[in-house]
C-alpha cells in the first residue's frame, strides 16, 4: 500500500504534470491548420521550445529539485529534455483523441521531413507506450524519474540526484502493482521503455540534422 506521504507525492506530481503542458492554442494549430513544409518546420520548432519551457516548470515542482546544485539542475534538464519530449508526445498518441486527430498528427510528423530511419523507431516507441496503457500517475512519475537520472553528462553530485530519484521509483513500483495487479512485469516494462528512450535520445541529433537538411 501507498503511505500518506507517497499518495501526497503522487497527487503533487500529477498535478504539476497536468498544469505544465504545451499551450492549447499551439497544439490546436497543429491539428487545424494547413501549412507548407517551412511553416510546418517552424511550428514544430516552436512547439519544441515551448515543450522545454513547460518541462522546466514541471521539473521545478519535483520535490527537492530546486535544492540541487544549479549547474546540476541544468545538466539534468539538458540530458533529459529530448526523452521527456518523446514521453509527452507518446502520451498524446496514447490518449483517445477525437476521431481522426491522431492520424492528422501522425501525418504532419511523417511529412515533416525527418528521415524514415528515425521515424520508424519513434512511432514504434509511441506504439509500445500505448500498449502499456499507462495511467496519468505513471506518465508523470516516469517523466520525473527520467529527469532525475543521475548518470547524465556533467552531473557533479550524482548521489544527491539518486536520493531524489529513488523514492520516485519506489512509488512508481507500488503504483504499478496497484494499477496493474494482473501484470507483475509492468514496472519492469516501464523501466524498459527508459532504455528505449535513451536510444531515441542518442539518435536525436542525427534526426534533427536529417530534418534540417531536407
Amino acid at each position: 500500500e501507498l503511505s500518506q506521504d507517497q499518495q501526497a507525492l503522487i497527487s503533487y506530481i500529477v498535478d504539476a504534470h497536468n498544469k505544465h503542458r504545451i499551450p492549447q492554442d499551439m497544439a490546436k494549430k497543429l491539428l487545424q491548420e494547413q501549412f507548407n513544409a517551412e511553416e510546418n518546420f517552424l511550428l514544430l520548432t516552436e512547439m519544441a521550445t515551448s515543450h522545454v519551457q513547460v518541462l522546466v516548470e514541471f521539473t521545478k515542482n519535483i520535490p527537492g529539485f530546486q535544492s540541487l546544485d544549479h549547474e546540476d539542475q541544468i545538466a539534468l534538464l539538458k540530458g533529459s529534455a529530448v526523452e521527456a519530449m518523446f514521453l509527452r508526445s507518446a502520451q498524446v498518441f496514447t490518449k483517445k483523441l477525437p476521431n481522426g486527430h491522431t492520424e492528422v498528427l501522425e501525418d504532419r510528423i511523417r511529412r515533416s521531413g525527418i528521415s524514415e530511419e528515425f521515424m520508424t523507431p519513434m512511432f514504434n516507441f509511441y506504439k509500445s507506450i500505448g500498449e502499456l496503457q499507462m495511467m496519468q500517475e505513471e506518465h508523470a512519475l516516469l517523466t520525473a524519474i527520467t529527469i532525475l537520472s543521475p548518470d547524465r553528462p556533467y552531473v557533479k553530485d550524482q548521489q544527491a540526484v539518486e536520493r531524489l530519484q529513488e523514492p520516485m521509483l519506489e512509488v512508481l513500483r507500488k503504483v504499478c502493482k496497484l494499477q496493474h495487479p494482473q501484470e507483475p512485469q509492468h514496472f519492469a516494462r516501464l523501466l524498459g521503455r527508459l532504455t528505449e528512450l535513451r536510444t531515441l535520445n542518442h539518435h536525436h541529433a542525427e534526426m534533427l540534422e536529417s530534418w534540417r537538411m531536407s
Binding site: 517552424l42 520548432t45 516552436e46 522545454v52 519551457q53 534538464l77 539538458k78 529534455a81
Partner: peptide, 22 residues
C-alpha cells in the same frame, strides 16, 4: 529571437530563471 535559433541550454537557463520569450 525566434525559438529555433536558441539552443537548448539557453532555453533551459532562461526558463529556470523564470524568463520566457525574450
Amino acid at each position: 529571437a525566434s525559438g529555433n535559433t536558441i539552443g537548448l541550454e539557453a532555453i533551459i537557463r532562461k526558463a529556470l530563471m523564470g524568463k520566457y520569450d525574450e
